[in-house]
């Protein structure tokens, strides 16, 4: 053992501690959402709450800590936490066909947060108009698919057309339902996070 003294201990500030705890819990919640699938009539693939988790990270934790939570989620999954779709894990998933969607999560959370909070800081979400919230989520979805589809195109060596059909068109109807659910939650003031 090294003989460390109390003067060596570098304490984490109170506010940062709360933010680290929230970011970690949010990342774990994203992982737990991977196991919850809803059958959705318009979409051939089951709908999970994960993309919704990306919006909500940006909205509730703010752009910086929301993006940090997503980075934690990816790193934890890469080293073996069963947090990716269907409870899988490992660097292989990040380099697999769906890796692009996962890599885009931190950026999408950042963008959703910056637009909803009008900058890097955190403002009360009740001040944000519905239009602003919809804009923030639409851009986040655009980022997720904008990174995810080309990645799949490259990864599986398919034509762009096939990539767009298998990687985006089949999932789009469900995204609208998720945005509606997210706005319902934020507007209802049901979350006691602020």
């Amino acid at each position: 053992m090294s003989n460390s003294t109390t003067t060596d201990v570098d304490l984490v500030g109170d506010e940062v501690t709360l933010n680290i705890a929230r970011a970690a819990l949010f990342a774990a919640l994203m992982g737990a959402f991977a196991y919850v699938a809803f059958p959705y009539p318009l979409s051939p693939a089951p709908v999970t709450l994960q993309v919704l988790g990306v919006f909500l990270a940006g909205l509730f934790l703010g752009p910086v800590w929301g993006a940090a939570a997503m980075v934690l989620y990816l790193v934890a999954g890469a080293i073996g936490a069963p947090v990716f779709s269907g409870g899988s894990a490992g660097i292989g998933v990040l380099l697999g066909p769906t890796g692009g969607y996962l890599f885009s999560y931190p950026l999408a959370a950042l963008i959703a947060g910056v637009i909803a909070h009008r900058g890097i800081g955190i403002r009360s979400l009740t001040e944000a108009s519905v239009t602003r919230l919809i804009a923030s989520m639409t851009l986040a979805v655009a980022v997720i698919y904008g990174v995810g589809v080309p990645f799949m195109w490259w990864n599986l060596d398919m034509t762009l057309q096939t990539a767009i059909v298998t990687g985006a068109v089949v999932f789009i109807p469900a995204e609208a339902a998720k945005m509606a659910a997210a706005i319902g939650i934020i507007r209802s003031d049901a979350i006691r996070a602020e």
Binding site: D14, L29, F33, F38, L52, F60, S188, I191
Partner: peptide
């Protein structure tokens, strides 16, 4: 959508409560 909302509200509230106690 209603089921998603119920699940999200409840799970987010619990996660944030846990985060507060944990910090």
């Amino acid at each position: 959508p209603v089921r998603m909302r119920i699940l999200l509200i409840a799970s987010l509230n619990r996660a944030f409560e846990r985060a507060d106690r944990f910090s």
